[in-house]
Nucleic acid binder design. Structure first.
Lengths: 361, 361
DNA sequence: AGAAGTTATGAATCCTCTC
DNA sequence: GGAGAGGATTCATAACTTC
């Protein structure tokens, strides 16, 4: 790296202005969590009447898509100039901004390697029931250009995923609990602090020891903290003095992992769960099929949304089984049967077959 | 729909040209799986397969993106014109094209409701180990505009997912096996045939019976096939006669679910409204009855006009519940309880019983 | 001490009809 | 079109409190 290059520091200022002071091709990897341009309108309450603390900070306010695009082109252009020819960049966003980010990255000459889905294990629900639960964010991973000889630690990623190739969908929890930095009032210090697990995986995938990692939107310092922990060098930019102060205190507490301990904690595995509705969707138990209890004393019909209907009653396989037998509860999987090729089979057969397929796949 | 509107047909031709012949606001929902052959070949081709000329350099990425964007703006613009003001559109793509699609949709005035991740249970592995396994595709679900009163069958989606809110990440298998259409040589007929399960979920979420669904890139007819099965009307556009032939033969084999089997879990909003006062009038909850909150910490008395009175306060079941709990709002139906035959029941029980009676009547 | 119950909260473009 | 009223709507997790 250049002699005049500040390293392992958080620089205060506007990210574009500060980046302009840095030399070409001086960083190996960029991680950027830019403003999302959320455009929230009114107040939102949970069903229990509590108010959702949305992102209403000034830094997320833009006059429109054009202003957002202009800002995006400016910082991405500088980031590309700072990136070594074989370097890569990670950018995270949601549907509000990720499409603009991705298109502008392509226009600027970045070469997209993957889009990665961060599936949240504990997302905020959709309280008004008007959309699907927004349960993920998207990361774009791109090389500086199509000819870049970029770094990808394939075996490390495979090891992280129980010796299976790491896929483009990652299942990780939000940053909550003690990991989440708090202010003096015990409230979250930053509205969008990212979990260290996310940075751990991105940096471990795309960098080697002593690489320089740049974060133009440092916030409370998750990127520098994980970079330091993993024995990478860092450079971060942040406008707000309070965030810089918190990030610097946080960095003080981070211990660098000894080289021989730079190994991997396996990711938490998601429990496979198969909704009954999936068999309706995939046609193995189509809507309209009649199902029975084992003695064929009761029957019900399968609806397109995976509920069962019997007379005036509608409900899940479990609820309808309980209702029709006056039981407090019922395991619908083993209660209901259907006919296939002359055989009378429990619907749990379908689930068992699916588990078998997944294990052999 | 307009009298001159062809329905339940596959129209042959270029999608933009054909769409231009159709009237404004004539479809309720669009599902589009556009081509994304951006730079996958040595020679540069437009999405309509014509070769881009006028490029002296070996390779010009900007021309490639520009041609793709031009085509995208054209068909999305027509799709938006054809969409009813409260209609929604689904567009599917991968990281090659989804960012351009999404940004152009926003520029044209579409209002994104969700981005949905189709997680593939059986993706193709990454053979060279140079990237993460590309294990998903992205769908964008958008309303025609921010003010659209769009359709979302929330309860049906929740039922499909074991009574939990449906999330933005969907786990579905690829279209394989008998579902995959083959040509005379036993090879796959179409390179990107989508699974019916994917269309089942999208159409069930965003349409009602008899809605008109448009697919501008029909291919082998998955969209019309599922639309027909679910009792929706369709309109599809396709260039290749071979695909049209296969799709028409496929549609012949599809059976429409009978109307009584098409019903899904109803939304409470759509149930006929019953005034609380009607229970006072018909004597099932006479004036003078005392009602309580669930913990029996509050109580109020029913007036002959269906208002509740508590101390100095009088108001509707909702207003009084909100007032006494200092809440911004309150659903009185589930807030207030009464006693009947020794049981402590929510007043919503009365409403549910009435709904049930009306259905059997 | 440990089990069981309660509370708080997360990048959110989050209602609809009638007058 | 604006105002007001009716009334529909939540999941996972961690920390804290109570027994």
């Amino acid at each position: 790296m250049k002699a005049d290059m500040p390293l392992n520091r958080i620089l205060r200022g506007e990210c574009v202005e500060v980046m302009k002071t840095l030399p070409d091709a001086s960083v190996n990897c960029v991680f950027a969590d830019p403003p999302y341009n959320l455009q929230l309108r009114g107040e939102l309450r949970r069903p229990d009447e509590s108010v959702v603390d949305g992102v209403d900070d000034d830094w997320d306010k833009f006059t429109g898509y054009e202003a957002y695009d202009e800002f995006t082109r400016a910082w991405l252009g500088e980031a590309r100039r700072l990136l070594h020819k074989d370097g890569t960049i990670w950018v995270i966003g949601s549907y509000h901004n990720i499409f603009r980010l991705g298109a502008i990255m392509q226009d600027l000459g970045f070469w997209i390697l993957n889009d990665i889905i961060w599936r949240k294990s504990n997302p905020m629900p959709n309280f008004r029931g008007r959309r699907f639960t927004n349960a993920h964010e998207t990361l774009i991973w791109a090389a500086r250009g199509p000819e870049s000889k970029y770094r990808f630690n394939y075996q490390a990623m495979k090891a992280l995923n129980e010796d299976l190739q790491m896929r483009s969908d990652w299942y990780l929890p939000l940053c909550t609990g003690n990991e989440r930095l708090k202010n003096d009032h015990g409230l979250k210090l930053h509205p969008t602090q990212k979990p260290e697990s996310l940075l751990h995986r991105t940096l471990l995938a795309a960098t080697v020891e002593d690489d320089v990692v740049l974060d133009p939107f440092c916030g409370t310092g998750t990127t520098p903290a994980v970079a330091k922990k993993l024995g990478r060098r860092y450079l971060a930019i942040e406008r707000h003095p309070d965030y810089i102060k918190a990030a610097e205190a946080r960095l003080e507490r981070v211990e660098v992992l000894p080289a021989d301990q730079l190994e991997i904690t396996p990711a938490k595995r998601e429990m496979p769960r198969i909704p009954f509705g999936s068999f309706v969707e995939n046609g193995s138990l189509p809507a309209g099929t009649v199902v029975y209890d084992r003695q064929k004393r009761l029957k019900a019909r399968v609806s397109p949304d995976g509920t069962l209907v019997s007379g005036q009653h509608r409900g899940s396989i479990h609820k309808l089984g309980a209702l029709l037998t006056n039981a407090a509860s019922c395991n619908g999987w083993t209660f209901w049967y259907f006919e296939r090729d002359g055989q009378f089979l429990s619907i749990d057969t379908l689930r068992q077959e699916t588990h078998l397929l997944r294990r052999t796949a």
